[in-house]
Amino acid sequence: MSNFDPNAILRGAQLTFVGAHRALQNPDLFTTHHYRQAAIAVCAGLAIRIILNVPIYGIRVLLWFLSMFMDLEGEGWDDAIIDGLDFISKSVLQIPFMLMMIMSSITPTLDNMFMDSLRWVDQTYIQKHKSDDPSQLRAMYHPTLAMYSTHGEREKKEKRTVMDGVMLFAMKYGRRAAISLATYGLTFVPGIGPLVLPAASFYTFNKAVGPVPATAVFAIGFVVPKRYFVQFLQTYFSSRSLMRQLLEPYFHRIRFTKEQKKTWFIDRAGVLFGFSVAFAVMVKIPLLGVLIYGIAEASTAYLITKITEPPPPPGSEKEFAHSEVRWKNKHLFLDLPMDRLDEFNAKLSRTEKLEAIPQVPRKSFT
């Protein structure tokens, strides 16, 4: 529960807005290159919308054809079919979200945006602390991470093609979509239907964040209507998937084992959920979703500087990854006031940090 407490979730939500504000202040995001990428993203969002609606339009045409031979004016099942398909595609299968994930995996644009934003975060940090003792400031993130290869040990093996990466992602998504669709289908089975979603949610939350949140969600599942409960669960799952995707530029450079990465995410679960849930909702906005995805990636650069230590130069990344599995300064960071986030210095101990933070009146943070 300590990893998923309300304070951690709230701090993650604060980092969403602070990180987005910091990212949008970066003048490099408004270059011709990024404008061109933004235009492509809008076109891609329109294409995603059209692709998503093709099956629904097809069924509408079929129903229109049937209406020539049947009286559907007084029937409601035709509208129920259309509404059900729309709900399954957007809320159960998360098709728009999946298509944007595939786009992000085949283009280096988001990786470049992450690194550009990380450089800006470092520059802003130096500017805000230009009058402080340089020996007391944290190390920079961008210059060191820029030394790392984005492929790591995989460079020694045959490089995968773009299509291989897309197919691998599609297979993973296909398994998840099949499980979601099967679970949703079981909710209509008499007798066991009402138990399916609460039981599935308890199993998932218990494994991810512990028994206390899992029990709370399990109880909510019996009160909230099924449609809204499905949307809540899928928002949680999509926020997790989005967060993992947004952190790929970092994990492509700093290599963790599967177990280390799992523990890394669990130890930061509350903050990561609070950070990603708002973006997970906003990326589903038609057309604008792909642009918000880019802002989310840029904001993640700010997040990294708060939940990880500055990385060492290449050569000792395995030892560094092992030391980063647990978030050593979690409680200190969660206890800091909102307007003092930039005074957080990962190099100092807890006592030293508290002494280093000047006791001055609070001011608005930007």
Rank of each mutant, 00 (worst) to 15 (best):
F188A: 03
T257G: 14
I192W: 08
N206E: 08
V281L: 01
L242K: 09
F279D: 00
Q231S: 11
L246K: 01
V283S: 01
E259F: 07
V209G: 11
K207I: 13
L246N: 08
F251G: 08
A200V: 12
A214Q: 13
A214E: 14
P190R: 00
S201R: 04
I254N: 14
F202N: 04
W264E: 10
S238M: 07
S238G: 03
F275Y: 12
F232G: 15
R253F: 15
A278D: 04
G274M: 04
R255G: 02
L197Y: 06
T263F: 14
G270Y: 15
V212N: 10
F202D: 05
N206D: 08
F275V: 11
R227S: 14
R227T: 13
K261T: 04
F237G: 05
A214D: 10
F256S: 03
F232P: 15
F237K: 03
L246V: 06
L242H: 08
V281C: 00
A208Y: 10
S241C: 10
R253G: 12
F275I: 11
V281R: 00
T235K: 05
T187K: 00
P194L: 04
F188S: 02
F229L: 10
S239V: 09
D267F: 11
T187C: 01
F251Y: 08
L197D: 07
N206Q: 08
M282C: 01
V281M: 03
G191E: 02
R240Y: 13
S238R: 06
V271P: 07
T187G: 00
R244C: 06
M243L: 09
A219P: 04
G221C: 02
F273C: 00
R253N: 13
A199V: 15
S201I: 09
T235G: 13
A214K: 12
S239K: 08
A278L: 07
Y228F: 15
Q245R: 11
K226S: 13
G185L: 03
V281P: 02
S276Y: 03
A269Q: 06
F279K: 00
Q231V: 10
R253H: 09
F273Q: 01
V209H: 14
F251H: 08
A280E: 04
F205V: 05
G185N: 02
A278Y: 06
I266L: 14
A280F: 03
V230P: 08
N206S: 07
K258C: 03
V277P: 04
I192E: 04
S238V: 02
F222V: 02
R244D: 04
E248W: 01
T204K: 02
F275S: 06
Q245T: 12
V283F: 02
F205P: 04
F265S: 04
P194I: 06
F229H: 09
L247V: 05
N206L: 12
A200I: 05
V189G: 00
R253I: 12
M282T: 02
T215W: 15
K207G: 15
A208I: 11
R244W: 08
V277F: 09
K261D: 06
I220T: 04
P194T: 06
F202M: 07
P198M: 04
F232S: 14
Q234C: 07
K207M: 12
T257F: 06
R244Y: 08
V271C: 06
E259R: 10
P211E: 13
P198C: 03
R240I: 13
P194C: 05
S239L: 09
L195P: 07
R227D: 15
K261V: 05
G185W: 01
V230L: 11
Q234M: 14
V196M: 12
